[in-house]
Computed example of a mutant assay.
Amino acid sequence: MSDVKFVFQNSEDILQFIYLPIVPSRSQEKVEAKTASTITAKRLGITTIDPVLARERYVYDSKNQPVEYTLSSYNAYKYSFNIEIHHE
């Protein structure tokens, strides 16, 4: 059996690979700073008084149907967000 490796740059690449007809057309994201919950702190190896960046993301297709929903938490001491917006 040959070794096949897939490299995806982001979740849109994964969606297009798995569900070829689905093409994300817009997304909404909210990023907020807050203290870590007990579960998040344990998973990130931090304490509950440490800050995290909490991200909530919705992705929609061209028919405005939701195709992805994610909740992510990042250690605020290690991550930052850079946002670039293109208007059509």
Rank of each mutant, 00 (worst) to 15 (best):
Y19S: 14
T40I: 02
A36V: 00
E56S: 12
N82P: 07
A36D: 02
P66W: 03
Y69S: 10
E29H: 00
I85K: 08
V31E: 14
T35E: 11
V31G: 06
F8A: 14
F6W: 10
H86Q: 14
S11R: 07
T48P: 08
Q65R: 12
S25L: 09
V31Y: 05
A36P: 01
P66C: 08
S37T: 04
K5H: 08
A54S: 06
D13I: 00
T40Q: 06
L15T: 07
P24T: 01
Y19E: 10
L44S: 02
Q9G: 13
D50V: 01
D61A: 12
E84R: 14
N10T: 02
Q28W: 07
Y60P: 04
D3Y: 06
Y69W: 12
A36F: 02
F6Y: 10
K63A: 12
T38C: 06
V59E: 10
T40M: 01
Y58Q: 11
L71Q: 12
F81V: 10
F81E: 13
V31H: 05
I18H: 06
V31W: 04
Y58H: 15
R43M: 01
T35A: 13
P24W: 00
K63I: 03
E56T: 11
I49P: 05
F81D: 09
I49A: 15
S25H: 06
P66Q: 13
N75C: 05
V4D: 11
T38N: 09
S11I: 09
N64W: 07
I46M: 02
A76R: 01
K78I: 00
K78D: 04
D3F: 07
K34P: 00
G45Y: 02
A54T: 03
I39N: 10
I39P: 01
G45D: 01
I22V: 13
E12C: 05
S73H: 09
R57T: 04
H86K: 15
S80K: 10
K5S: 06
Y60E: 09
P66V: 06
T38L: 12
E32W: 15
E12P: 00
Q16I: 04
A41W: 01
Y19W: 08
T48Y: 13
A76Q: 03
